[in-house]
Amino acid sequence: MADVIHRDYRLIPIIDRFGINFGFGNKTIEEVCFDYQLDTSFFLAIINSYHNPNYFPQLELQSFSTELIIQYLSNTHAYYLDEKMPEIQGYISQMQLCVIDKNVQNIKLIDDFLKGYEEELRKHLQKEDNNVFPYIMALEQAFETRKCSEELIQQIKTTPIETYERNHDNVEEKLSDLKNLILKFLTPVSCKAICQRLLTELFRLESDLENHTRIEENVLVPKVKLLEQQIIETLS
């Protein structure tokens, strides 16, 4: 397991998302996964997809239970909202203390912009957590128990996952704007170190979100579409 992190330190937050703590000694991935009662193949598929975007085990990932994928995605949401965003916000607050003249207004603008972005991201992720994921869980349960409520059938017909896919607004656009505003147009600040950390975290968040979106769009959505189709065909 330690070798994995030595190979790619960007995986540090990912293993945390699985609940894995440091101090795993020389244990192998399989041993650590056993300790934490994790599905080793799922763990591998996820860390590999982060490590190398070209390696995207779509079929393999789709073979895992929906619950497993949703649990992982929910953990990721919590990580964005509870850890990443406060961290980024913290850097901006620090920058507010170190600027003068025109940059006082500029950093305030960036702060407001970030708050707007956070609000959007929160709404988007909460919608998934509160509406989309429970819907998917209900589908899976219906399919397994072979019992499907009339309500659920109606929902499949009126608001299938496809509508959600269409509404899957691009949460990354604002993030990219934010990066460029700081990188290209902000008057240089004296607290360079904080500004660098801020930018680095924005880049990290962006690539993390990209991967997250890939898992949602290429794994979860096709899986759910299939589930919907099977339920309609067999249970309605």
């Binding site: 603008l109 960036i110 707007g116 990219s176 704007d177 460029n180």
Partner: peptide
């Protein structure tokens, strides 16, 4: 040219450069 897509982002840019007032 700017690498900024959203209206909110363009607004920040415009204020930063004194093209408009907040």
């Amino acid at each position: 040219k700017l690498g900024i897509k959203t209206i909110a982002g363009l607004t920040v840019f415009a204020i930063m450069n004194n093209f408009i007032k907040p």
